[in-house]
Design a protein around this nucleic acid. Structure first.
Length: 272
DNA sequence: ACTATCCTGAGT
DNA sequence: ACTCAGGATAGT
């Protein structure tokens, strides 16, 4: 579920709510979510540590800890990290981090999320994390970089934008929105994208991510931020989930197709 | 470059 | 009963 703006919304809240607090106890209700440690070593390694900061890279969250290991989290489709000052029951709770003040709940309905212990001096050893490209909204993701990546691939532009090793943070919603904003059809081969189109796409990616962040993320179904509240960016989407409704630019109907196994929405008139 | 798969839940 | 879902990866 969560893409860059959603994960950043969680990060920003947890940075203020949980950083500086100490993990007193870890209860792991679903051990298989931890990918690189057994349940007991996982809990014992984190207990007693202070959370010194909360970072984000792509769609990964890092709870930096004072000890040798820190906690890396990927929320995948339905994960959520929620800080509670007062205890209340949350459906789908898979792990509970009791802090010296309040607690952190890891909730995950579909249980596809991942937790890892990583060295505090720098997360390493997690394949997907190690191979991340530059964050899609970072200065490192330049037009020149995009041109270079696109020219050497015969894949579709949609598949390449979803590829986290090319650039990190985009998911299905923001890719469809960015392609609409840039006027590029999702099934285009990325080697056919012109420099002018890359320029529009580069700006469009920045715009849709900034807008998502500004609205506290997009909540279609499950997403909630670190404070347990939903985002509001769903009210500003122009194609995602809009199949069968008029295009906001030209009035022709938004189309739904499958592209690389992912549901894809676009305007066949505005996007060429 | 596709597809099958990991899961649960909601909608048709 | 069947399809779909904001993600990623191990297969083919």
């Amino acid at each position: 579920m969560p893409e860059l703006p959603e994960v950043e919304t969680v990060r920003a809240y947890l940075e203020t709510a949980a950083a500086g607090k100490r993990i007193e106890r870890v209860d792991l209700l679903l051990p298989r979510l931890v990918k690189n440690a057994g349940p007991e070593p996982f809990c014992r390694a984190l207990e007693g540590q202070q959370i010194t900061g909360v970072k984000r890279r792509g769609k990964y969250l890092l709870l930096q800890c004072s000890g040798a290991v820190s906690l890396l989290v990927h929320l995948r489709m339905t994960g959520a990290l929620i800080y509670q000052a007062e205890e209340s029951v949350i459906q789908g709770t898979r792990a509970v981090f009791t802090l010296d003040e309040g607690r952190l709940i890891y909730r995950d309905i579909r249980t596809l999320g991942c937790l890892w212990l990583v060295p505090s001096e720098g997360p390493a050893g997690v394949k997907g994390y190690d191979s991340l490209g530059p964050d899609a909204n970072s200065p490192a993701c330049t037009e020149a970089y995009m041109i270079e990546k696109f020219s050497s691939s015969r894949r579709t532009i949609k598949a390449v934008l979803l590829d986290q090793t090319v650039m990190a943070g985009l998911g299905n919603i923001y890719v469809d929105e960015a392609l609409f904003s840039a006027g590029i059809a999702p099934q285009r081969r990325c080697s056919s994208i012109s420099a002018g189109e890359v320029k529009r796409l580069h700006q469009a990616i920045r715009d849709v991510l900034a807008q998502g962040l500004q609205h506290g993320g997009t909540t279609i179904r499950d997403f909630i931020g670190g404070n347990g509240k939903e985002g509001s960016n769903q009210a500003f989407l122009r194609v995602y989930g809009k199949e069968g409704t008029p295009c906001p630019q030209c009035g022709s109907l938004i189309v739904y197709v499958k592209s690389g196994g992912r549901g894809t929405r676009y305007c066949p008139h505005c996007q060429q």
